Computed example of a mutant assay.
Amino acid sequence: MNVLVINAGSSSLKFQLLDTNTREVFAKGNCERIGIEGSFVGYTVNGEKKQLDVDMPDHKTAVQHVFEILKAVDKPIEGIGHRLVQGGWYFPESKVVTDETLGWAREVAPLAPLHNYAEADVIEICRDMFPELGNVIVPDTAFHYNMPERAWRYALPRDVVDKYHVRKYGAHGTSHRYIWRTVDEFTNHETHKLVSCHLGSGASLCAIEDGHCMDTTMGLTPLDGLIMGTRCGTVDPATVFYLNRVGGYSIDDIDTMMNKKSGLLAVSGVSSDSRDVRDGAANGDANCQMALDMFNYRASQLIAEMAASMEGMDTMAFTAGIGENSAEIRAAIVDRLGWLGVKIDPELNDVRSDDPRVISTPDSSVKVLVVPTNEELMIALDVEALLG
């Protein structure tokens, strides 16, 4: 089935057209700086990279350019899948777009206002432009929705929790689900307790037992858990009150600070990109080294926490930008788990490949893998399953 996968952000729109049977990607690209001066579309069609410098005042214009670009591909679009960052309490699984489900996406948008509203708008545009095509919503939160209540419930008054739907929702669920599927096949179904490590500019861990999410590190929003590129990760909640009352920062100021000005960027004082931070550390920058030390320390702590939620782990998998590409960070994290008997082979760890691979030693207590993620394929497979 030829599926168009769309992932709309506040000022961007990524797209990919692929065949779910052959897994061939016919076209992919990203509309960048939507609503901002200097907007453009970088894309690859039929193996040829191109860039279109064009004014895109809104997502509707961006989608129109995407469909114009896709005319160069001699493949019919048979369904459209939409990544939704926050499915809230309505989406324990992916769902076909109807007036009702689209309304749900908008209703839960306050939990992810920069993304949900944009994606809901794009869904409407796709329905208007191609009413004959089916659309499917694939929420990032769905995989985590049915984790045990002891993991998702916050110790807040029940009336508050129930009225405002306050709970752990998690994120990166589509990626974690793909990692489980791939690891399960790769290990001939011998994996039962997997800690999936999605480490990138946004980062989260997930404890997966026999295909079911048992816990994850992100919470009500993607701010919780690991230190990330610009997000602070877990801090004492009272920090917000303190900065507001004593520092004079508004709630919006603190929101921006914790989401966009913290993390590796804040500690290193150099960049939110781990590659720049590693370069700085290699050149003797103490702040960059501290940023890496904190990232690795926190990741190892939370891996152990995820394992505790399953009462053990037999497999770990690194994925996403940092997890797939930084042998140095993988080694540093695993080194801190040596007390659990986890070991990796330095030579295997240094291998670069687009395929899943084992990097642990034969005597390691836990099998450690590197698995390139493919959220677009996972979304496309959901479209195929729901639309046939």
Rank of each mutant, 00 (worst) to 15 (best):
V371T: 01
K260C: 09
S272L: 02
F40D: 05
Y297A: 02
A207G: 00
L18F: 06
H115P: 13
K71H: 12
G247A: 02
Y117F: 13
C232E: 03
N135R: 12
D159S: 05
S268A: 13
N374A: 08
F186A: 06
I123W: 06
N349I: 09
R181N: 06
G225M: 13
I329D: 03
P139M: 08
D293V: 04
K50W: 12
C288I: 15
V383Y: 00
A27M: 10
P76Q: 03
Y43M: 12
I6S: 04
M218W: 00
I251D: 14
A27D: 03
N259W: 13
L302A: 05
S250Y: 06
I179S: 02
Y117K: 13
G321H: 09
A286L: 14
G88A: 09
T191Q: 00
H198R: 06
T174P: 03
T256I: 12
E305K: 14
D354R: 14
N188E: 09
W339R: 07
F241H: 12
L226D: 15
I254W: 11
G321F: 12
L205E: 02
V45D: 06
D273C: 05
G103M: 11
G9P: 09
S309G: 11
V97L: 09
L205M: 14
M218Y: 00
P222C: 05
I344C: 00
G35N: 14
T174V: 09
A331T: 10
Y145H: 12
M290L: 15
S10A: 10
F143S: 02
S175Q: 08
L220F: 14
M316I: 15
T22H: 12
V240D: 07
M218C: 01
C126T: 09
R106I: 08
F295I: 02
H198P: 05
D74S: 12
E78H: 08
N374P: 01
E68D: 15
L13S: 09
L4C: 09
V108E: 04
